[in-house]
Design a protein around this nucleic acid. Structure first.
Length: 124
DNA sequence: GCATTGACGAAGG
DNA sequence: CCCTTCGCCAATG
């Protein structure tokens, strides 16, 4: 499980994965099926709420990590599928969400607030 | 080694 | 209410 806080980010070339990245992946993998969360929520849970962009950047490598990361369950604060363009196909993300039972309308999660899953609350 | 760029988000105009 | 700016920090040019 995430250390909750991992300010120490090793330099490039040493570790294949940064702790921060691993924590992000770990949290994302714990998102229940049919639920979604936001980059900011994950960042806040990790203690770096001011660095939501880093979560997004971490997700950039999510597609290559071994245990697949359900990156489709992570959207921006507006519930919009801001990262759909980064998937294999522009429609892959919403298709995965639909398989999870999450309705997607106009690149946005329907009833986002109801589907919202806050790691800071659910994970403690 | 400085400048630019983000799968973000909050604040200001 | 829409648009712009700023902050955050790693990666890339």
């Amino acid at each position: 499980m995430p250390s909750k806080k991992q300010p120490q980010l090793p330099k490039t070339g040493k570790a294949k994965e940064y702790s921060f990245f691993q924590d992000v992946y770990d949290v994302v993998r714990q998102i229940p099926k049919g639920r979604v969360t936001s980059y900011g929520a994950i960042a806040a849970y990790l203690g770096t709420k001011l660095s939501a962009r880093m979560v997004g950047w971490a997700m950039n490598g999510a597609h290559k990590v071994k245990p697949k990361v359900p990156a489709q369950r992570v959207v921006n604060r507006n519930g919009m599928l801001s990262g759909k363009a980064h998937f294999e196909t522009p429609t892959h993300m919403e298709e995965l969400l639909k398989k999870d039972g999450v309705a997607v309308k106009n690149d946005t999660v329907v009833d986002f607030e109801k589907r919202f899953w806050d790691p800071a609350v659910e994970l403690g």
